[in-house]
Each structure stands twice: as C-alpha cells, then as structure tokens.
Design a protein around this nucleic acid. Structure first.
Lengths: 207, 207
DNA sequence: GTCTATACGTAGATAGAC
DNA sequence: GTCTATCTACGTATAGAC
C-alpha cells in the first residue's frame, strides 16, 4: 500500500494552462504573470526562471499561479506561443498580398526585424527553450505555418528548392537580427538593409 | 513576508578549474569528465546537466570531479574554451596565409561548417551557455581573436565597415549551419555552398 | 478563488574516511 | 588523491485555511 505512493513517475509535463482565461480578470492575471516571466527571463535567463519568483514579481501567490500554469514549462510554452502567433499574423498578411518577390521579401524582413529586435534577449531565451521543450501541438503548428507561408511566396515566384531555401532565409535573418540585438544595435532600418543584402545575395546566385 | 533569509548570496561562480592537469593521468580524467559532460549536454541540455550525473557517467566520484571543476559552470566554461580554441586555431592558420578574398572566405566557411556541423546540438547548447555565463577572460579573449582574424582579412581586401561586416558574416554562417544541423543535414559540401552564396551575396552588394 | 504554509525531491558542495 | 556519506539550499507542487 505504502509503496503505491511513489509509483513510476510518468514524466508528463503539462504545457497547457489549466484554465483558459475567458473572464477579463483572469485574462489580466494571466497577462501579468506572463509579463513577469518575460522580464525574469530577460534578466536571469532560463535557469533563473522559477515559479516562486514569477509569482512574487507578478504580485500573485504561488498557489494562484499554479491555477493558471501547471509549472515553469507551461509559462515558457505560453510565451513561445504568443511570440510565434504575433509574428505569424504579420507574415501571413504579407504573404497573401502578392507582388514582386523583392518587395515581399523586403516587407517580410522588416516585420522580422521589428519583431525580433524589440526584445532580443527574450527572443533568444525563448528560442532556446523551444528546443528543449517537447514543443506542444500549437507551437509546432505555428512554426509550420510560418515556414509554409514563406515557402509559398518562394514557389509563387518559381524559386528552386523552396523548402531548403525558406529554411536558409529564416536562418540568415534570425542569425543576423539575433547577433545585432545582442550587440546592442537598435537601428532597425540599417539592420534591415544588411539582412536584405544577405537574403537577396543568396537568392540571386541561385537563380 | 518573513525576514530575509536568503538575501546575502554572494553569487560567486568560479570558472577556473582548481587544478591544471599537468600530469597525464589527471589530463585523462579531465578529458573523460568533459566528454561525459558533453554527452549529457547533447542528450538533456543545460538544465539536465548536473555534477552528480557527470561524475556518474565519467566513472569518477563526485568528490573527484569537484577537485578538477568547482561546479557545473566550470564544466561549461571548459567546454566553451575547448570549442573556441579548436576553431580559432584553424581560422588563424587560414587568415594568415593570404590569397584572394573569395578563396580565403571559402576555406573559412569550410572550417566553420566542419567545426559546427560535427556536433551541432552540443555547439548550440554551448552557445547559449556562453550568453548566460559571465564569460571568463580566456573565452572572451578567444572570441575577440576570432573576430579580429576575420576583420583583418576583410580589411586586407579593403572591405568597408570591416567590424560590422565581420559580425554579420559570422552571424550568417552560424545561423545557417545551426539550422542545418538541427534539421539533420550532414552534407557539408552542399551546406558550404549555400553559406557561400549568402556570404558572397552580402559582400558583393556592399562593394 | 486566492492566500499561507509546508512537504517533497533534487542538486550543490563539503568533510572526513580510506 | 580518490571515494562515501551527508548537510544544506532551493525549487516544485499541493493541501488546507480564509
């Protein structure tokens, strides 16, 4: 009987929040908690993030936090989802509008720079967290949607090997913006031009 | 709340190993420990790395491990130093040889691809660890040396804005190789060509 | 439904035996 | 000089009060 207590640990990280914040007050609480988590992430990184500190900074008790997020990983998953969803919205809008390839890519790069340069440290920590977490269905779907949107644009303009090209373009942009953010750059326009040079250079050799 | 109990935390991470492995047996032990740490990093990431597990995998006791490394961060610092030193050696050799810019960059990209595609997960974890650790003197010096070597090549060929260009080229390469490694690519030659396209494209627009 | 208090597990680090 | 045993601290998660 007593042995049952410590039965085989299922290792089941729950990434979904226990409650969906349908009420406005709950939504506000969730927002406060997530913003606190984001700030801590920026200041202390992944290892410095813990549920007690988040609750304290958010001004709620640890018990309340656990009512909305079943653990540290759930906080990270929510932050990742939010970030991905924000970018995806902008990207899909651009991709469905059509136009010259160069124009579309320019605008996409602008969106990416704006998105990633806003809080570079936070994005970097989230990107790393994404690799370690067994990323949930929703985040995976958002990632796929992002890649597919870009791939669609490339195919619409008859670019060869759209799949690997899309991956490379994302890697180039992400790497450069990451690096610039880390170096303390804040001039989005200049950075945008440099990313454009790399992206257009990569493509012009290909065609 | 109650009185501050954990307020006076000095937070003094020692990054230097306690002993330098001058004897061959010690050097072997250090090597075994570091390889064990590297494997765990690849399998479980930064949060999964702990001193007990490293000692166990390395086949030494936790006490012995602490004689060589005063903690988890010292293990990471040593791994980062080793990786940086390995790449720097190759890069400096290439940079001091002279020749056409395109030739030199080609060879540099080859070295970078070879270096980073070998153990992509490990490199990614180390890159992230590098950001969180107050990186020690030696690693900082190695990083500077790397950047300077590339910058020197660019300046020798009269490339404008060598500093920011060097940073961008490193960011492009690192981002693409990282992404390719994560996607499971193992064809170094193909990847090398794609990185070359991005790098040469970036530069040709600049000149 | 929000808080306080606490039990539990894990990891860090050391002291002392051999 | 290497190992075993252990102490301490911290973070997670829950139970129960309000």
């Amino acid at each position: 009987m007593a042995a049952d207590k410590a039965s085989a640990t299922p290792e089941k990280p729950r990434l979904q929040a226990r409650k969906q914040p349908l009420q406005s007050r709950s939504a506000a609480t969730v927002g406060v908690i997530l913003e606190a988590a984001a700030r801590i992430l920026e200041e202390r990184g992944l290892t410095g993030l813990n549920t007690n500190l988040v609750a304290q900074r958010a001004g709620v008790s640890i018990g309340s936090l656990y009512q909305y997020f079943p653990g540290k990983e759930a906080l990270l998953a929510a932050l990742i989802r939010d970030a991905r969803a924000g970018l995806l919205e902008a990207v899909q809008q651009i991709c469905t509008q059509g136009g010259l390839l160069s124009t579309q890519l320019r605008v996409l790069i602008r969106a990416a720079v704006h998105h990633q340069l806003h809080r570079p440290q936070l994005m970097r920590h989230l990107e790393y967290a994404e690799l370690m977490l067994p990323l949930d269905q929703e985040s995976a779907a958002l990632n796929d949607a992002l890649l597919n949107a870009l791939q669609g644009v490339l195919m619409a303009h008859a670019v060869q090997e759209a799949e690997v090209t899309a991956r490379d373009l994302i890697a180039i942009s992400r790497g450069m913006i990451d690096s610039a953010g880390l170096a303390g750059e804040s001039d989005a326009a200049t950075l945008e031009n440099r990313v454009w040079r790399a992206v257009s250079g990569y493509l012009s050799c290909a065609v």
